[in-house]
Design a protein around this nucleic acid. Structure first.
Length: 159
DNA sequence: GTATTGATCTTCT
DNA sequence: GAAGATCAATACA
């Protein structure tokens, strides 16, 4: 269950698409509903959901999720026991799910992926983004209210 | 408990 | 040559 995301737009200085299309971020430019995977600091993979059609360059970064199934497999991949550390962070999330550059550009509505809408109404908290050095004031981080699984236990909640 | 730093790829200056 | 949408080990209070 996804509990934390961040938005990145084409005219956003912190976004990879800000300076145009490159071989690495090509998947970010569409089509929507596909996965954009990039390598961070040389050693981690980070997963985004593309949310605009061809040529735009907007996506939502999956920052954290609450493990509800496949716990054993996640622990295997991460080499950790603590459930709260399995997916609490972009790099951790990607590793726990087994997402790598090989999944870059794949559609999320077909196997091996399946993306389901939340059931019922849910409360979302809005805070400033984390882990970036530009445009850090934009309130584009979205966290499931009341969840204890986001990557920052106590975000300096700006609301 | 908080602060600092290494690992190491892609893009930018 | 430097920085970055990161993580985790180590150092310090």
């Amino acid at each position: 269950m996804i509990v934390e995301t961040e938005a990145y737009a084409p005219d956003d200085p912190a976004s990879h698409s800000y300076r145009g299309r490159t071989p690495r971020n090509a998947a970010m430019f569409g089509p929507a509903g596909h996965l954009y995977v990039y390598r961070s600091h040389g050693i981690h993979w980070c997963a985004n959901v593309v949310c605009e059609e061809d040529g735009i360059g907007a996506a939502v970064l999956l920052r954290a999720l609450e493990p509800t199934a496949g716990l054993a497999r996640m622990r295997e991949r991460r080499g950790l026991e603590d459930v709260r550390l399995l997916c609490a962070g972009p790099g951790r999330l990607a590793e726990a799910l087994g997402i790598t550059g090989a999944h870059d550009g794949l559609p999320l509505d077909r196997p091996p992926f399946e993306l389901l809408a939340a059931s019922g109404s849910i409360a979302i908290e809005t805070t400033t983004r984390v882990g970036i050095t530009r445009a850090g004031n934009l309130p584009w981080r979205y966290v499931l209210a009341g969840s204890s699984f986001p990557s920052r236990p106590r975000p300096r909640a700006v609301r």
